[in-house]
Design a binder for these strands. Structure first.
Length: 573
DNA sequence: GCCGTTTTCGGCCCGACTGTTTTCAGTCG
């Protein structure tokens, strides 16, 4: 049974949950949570690394004790502490923590007093009216618990970034009409461009916060008002998306934006920096005693802490604070840097527009080239192209290039990687194309070693220049397939192949961590829309956000290169 | 359990809202 970083992170998370239920030292609990985060974002595969006899590198938040637990888990698949905690508390009790309003203290009371340790038991206790009898609980709490279990069984839902962004834009437009409101901006994970968003965090400036909070409560799409006070309010939209609003005076706008954008880990680091200087940072500003040193803008607050402004996409405590302190922040890629798009579909396979229409739409959006890369014959459901249709399409591409100015259409293909790692079209068909994009569209459940070998074999084909959506995930629908991404990235470097960041809202694949890995390993990333229609070039914005989360600069993005430079890269060997 | 240009002990981010308590604990972000 292979042990992955995700398994290790989950184990640390479970330890944190169970320690919390035992009311252990909160800082010890935090240490496990931080370790879980660090491990889950780690690029090297810990178990493989240790199995090869190499020492664990120095990792933030992982000292002697946790380092030993990492080794223990990698070697045995178990952590003695976790085993012991699981013996001491019933399985499943940690699930109760996921319910809104239930934390470790209350879960502990429910267990000690009512012997409740599962969601079904808790629901029965609520319906029987037993919860209201407990000290610290009441009828309201009992009702909320029953409702939460019935609605979702405690499951936390996350929304795709593009979906949440639409709701957020509508809420923001509504809030801008509130009486006495100044700025309105979406903060939180939406502003950090995370691929999924748990809830929408909205920040507004006003001198009358209560009025703005009340205005939100009357938003027509609100299903339930969860909380509302003079400075903050939370509502649940009918789509089941929670919106948290915070209102501050203009002099605190920057500090509040910083606080409400997060991430939590980034904020904690900043507050520690403030403490080291004898200052206090909160959502109202940076303070020395009662004197506000900064707060109106984010730049002011960072500057007062001795740092340049840090782009929101980087604020994950993944080294950005250290980089900022040493003048080493990346100059992140922007949408304006993109010169072309190397993965576009047309009516020839499953797209909705002609080659000419797609080219014209790309030109309108400031692009100088697109690569038409249809599916290959194997993907019959998408009208994949066989060699004959591919040759015919080539003729149409040439005529479009002759007619249209200011945009160049490259002849490409999104060729399927077959089960054995060979490609769906023969080399002599691929050779004359401008660009070959290889993609896995089948056999998602192969064992890790087999899947990895398959993809590495495809990358050995001399015509392949881009590996499309390298993880094969569909957000909310399909998990990424199990593959040794680091091995894939290193093969790409060896073969001078670029990795795609597919910017389709359901994919966003590579992930941010994958982009960072590509950057660290010196592999180019192509930010491609995978557009199937003329409006889908807008996907590129999503891709750029994710690329920025992965610290990518223009030099690391293949399609940030002007066409002549791109052609030189394509004409290697 | 981690960590150190106020180091190896004594710290560890900070404030708002809810429900229940009659002055505040628990939870959340």
């Amino acid at each position: 049974m292979p042990v992955t970083n995700a398994d290790l992170a989950a184990a640390f998370g479970q330890i944190a949950d169970l320690l919390e239920l035992q009311q252990a030292n909160p800082f010890r609990i935090r240490a496990y949570r931080k370790a879980a985060r660090v491990v889950s974002e780690l690029r090297l595969d810990v178990a493989t690394h240790l199995a090869a006899g190499k020492p664990l590198p120095k990792l933030p938040g992982i000292g002697k004790d946790l380092g030993a637990k990492v080794a223990e888990f990698a070697a045995t698949g178990h952590i003695a502490l976790l085993d012991r905690l699981q013996r001491e508390l019933p399985a499943g009790i940690a699930d109760l923590l996921a319910l809104p309003g239930l934390g470790p203290k209350r879960v502990r009371v429910l267990y000690d007093e009512l012997h409740v340790h599962s969601l079904p038991q808790l629901l029965r206790a609520a319906r029987d009216g037993r919860i209201r009898t407990l000290h610290g609980f009441g009828v309201r709490t009992e009702e909320k618990i029953a409702k939460a279990i019935e609605q979702h069984l405690g499951q936390v839902r996350r929304f795709k970034l593009a979906t949440a962004a639409q709701y957020a834009a509508a809420v923001a437009a509504y809030l801008r009409r509130a009486p006495g409101v100044g700025d309105v901006i979406a903060a939180g994970s939406l502003r950090r461009c995370r691929d999924t968003v748990g809830d929408v965090d909205m920040l507004a400036t006003s001198t009358d916060g209560g009025a703005v909070c009340g205005w939100l409560a009357r938003y027509p799409d609100v299903a339930e008002v969860l909380a509302s006070g003079p400075t903050r309010a939370s509502v649940l939209l009918r789509a089941d998306l929670q919106v948290d609003l915070r209102v501050v005076p203009p002099a605190s706008h920057g500090a509040a934006l910083l606080y409400f954008t997060g991430s939590k880990a980034h904020n904690i680091r900043l507050r520690n920096l403030a403490l080291e200087r004898g200052l206090k940072l909160n959502e109202y500003g940076l303070w020395r005693g009662r004197e506000q040193l900064a707060g109106a803008t984010e730049e002011d607050v960072y500057a007062a802490l001795g740092l340049p402004w840090i782009p929101p996409e980087l604020r994950e405590d993944r080294g950005e604070i250290e980089a900022a302190a040493h003048g080493g922040l990346p100059s992140l890629v922007t949408r304006a840097d993109l010169r072309g798009d190397l993965h576009v579909h047309t009516k020839w396979s499953d797209g909705t527009a002609t080659i000419e229409a797609m080219a014209a739409a790309a030109r309108e959006r400031g692009l100088g080239y697109i690569a038409v890369s249809e599916h290959s014959r194997r993907l019959a459901v998408a009208h994949g192209l066989d060699p004959v249709r591919l040759a015919k399409q080539r003729g149409e591409i040439e005529s479009v290039n002759a007619r249209l100015h200011g945009i160049s259409v490259l002849a490409g293909i999104e060729v399927d990687v077959l089960e054995d790692g060979s490609l769906d079209l023969p080399d002599e068909v691929l050779a004359p194309l401008d660009i070959v994009v290889a993609a896995v569209h089948s056999q998602f459940h192969l064992p890790r070693a087999v899947q990895t070998r398959r993809i590495l074999a495809a990358l050995d084909n001399p015509h392949v220049r881009i590996l499309a959506h390298p993880l094969g995930r569909l957000i909310d629908q399909r998990e990424p397939y199990d593959v040794d991404l680091l091995a894939v990235v290193r093969k790409c470097r060896e073969r001078n192949v670029a990795l795609e960041l597919n910017a389709h809202p359901e994919r966003l694949d590579l992930t941010d961590v994958g982009c960072r890995m590509a950057r660290d390993e010196g592999v180019l990333v192509a930010i491609n829309s995978d557009a199937h229609g003329v409006h889908q070039f807008d996907n590129l914005d999503l891709g750029v956000g994710q690329a920025r989360r992965g610290w990518l600069e223009p030099a690391q993005v293949l399609n940030a290169r002007p066409l002549p430079e791109l052609r030189r890269w394509l004409d290697r060997d």
